[in-house]
Each structure stands twice: as structure tokens, then as C-alpha cells.
Amino acid sequence: MTAKVVTITSGKGGVGKTTAVANIAVALASRGQKVVCIDGDIGLRNLDVVMGLENRIVYDLVDVVEGRCRLRQAMIHDKRLPELYLIPAAQTRDKSAVSPSDMVRLCDELRPDCDWIVIDSPAGIERGFRNAIAPADKVLVMTNPEVSAVRDADRVVGLLDAEEKGPASLIINRINPAMVKRGDMLSVEDVLDLLAIELIGIVPEDENVLVASNRGTPLALDGKSRAGLAFQNIARRLLGETVPFLDFEAPNLLQRLFTGRK
């Protein structure tokens, strides 16, 4: 096995990077892949909460880097899936505790024993961002259909090109089809038109995402919701499958039931 390192980043905060990392990792692992997620947001760790593994943290990324534990000891096994692991970030330190070359070393050590390493990048374009992209084979840039998020994504795409980490792929998160239809929200086409990079996923706005994050059970675990399905599709595309993008115009089961009754 030689793992592929995928980093999810965005520039702007709050667009859904952490949720995406948790869900894509779960989706990959549920397809029989061995997956290790790394929380790169040192000082503001979240991924453990979203994955529901917070209470099992003993060692973290900084402990590994500073040699207080072995890599294996910091890997928390998510027991819901056979081969899903999390290396959490330290909460009591900051981004400068780890350097880009530390991240490259760490991933090189992991590569032989797993299929995927998924890294959650912090917001911003400073040290934490550079740490997160340093070991990446593929970078997924995430944005919301919102002018400010797209502006930041554009900046990040430019920086990735400059660091020779391109071409990046794009995930558009929290699309609300009804608002797009009314012309109140940027459409997928508007965003693609500006960023001009390959699209790898469109995730619809879905209340279940928030509920699942709060509970610590990533949506992609059951895959019944539309957002969960969208994340499953991203994982399949990463695995090389050709999957058509979801058609959000089609009514879902609930709507069909209701209109059927009328």
C-alpha cells in the first residue's frame, strides 16, 4: 500500500472543511479502504468532535512530532469501521509547534500502511495551511456559494499553483437549489466560471449535517441523506469512479410522498 495524501482546505473559515474530512474519510473507509485522518488545526481542534472520538484522545499530533509517543499510539481507531483512524491535533499549542517538513515526514511514515491520508487544514493561508498542504498529493479546495468564500478559494488556488501543489479540485458545499433558482445564490456554474478548476463534489445544504456533527456521527455512515450521498460520491470519484453529479432538482422521497397525496 502507498497512501495518497489528500488535503482539504478553503482559505475562509466555516465553509465545512472539517465535516467534509470526516465524511470523506468515513466514505472511503466504508469502501474497504484503510484511512487515516489528520487534524491540522492545532490549537483549535474539531475533527475529533465531529467524528465523535474526543473522549478517546491520549496523544496528539504534536506529541508525535516532538517524540513523546510513537505514531501508532496517537492513532485513534474509529470502531464503527474496520480501518478508520484519527490523529488529533493538540489543543494546548499553536500552529508553530509543527513545521511543513514534520508533516511530510509523518505522512511518509504512514504511507506504506494505509490507502488514504486525509488532512484537515485550518482556515487561513499561514503556517497551518502550509503544514497541511506540504505532504499533499491532491488538494481539494472547498467553498460555499458565497462571494467572499469564493474570493478566498481563488486566492488559495493561486497559492497552490505557486507552491506547485496544483491543479486543485473543487468541492462546493451548502448549495441551496431553491435559492439558486431564485437567483439569490451563486450557482455551481458561477463558481466554476471564476475558479476554473476541476469539480469533484457538490454538497447540498442539509440540516442533518449539523445534527450529525453535534452527535459525532458523520452522515456518510448511513448515507441516506443527500449530503451524505454527496460525500459518498466524492469518495467514489477519489477512487477513480465516474459518478454523475446529484440532480438537486429532482424531488426527494418526502416531497414525492407529499405531492402524491395531494
Binding site: 474570493r151 478566498d152 481563488d154 486566492r155 488556488v157 493561486g158 497559492l159 499553483d161 476554473a196
Partner: peptide, 8 residues
């Protein structure tokens, strides 16, 4: 010969 992105 490239697109001038935000921040460039």
C-alpha cells in the same frame, strides 16, 4: 500567460 487570481 496565466489567470491572475485573488491576491496576485
Amino acid at each position: 500567460r496565466q489567470t491572475i487570481r485573488s491576491g496576485m
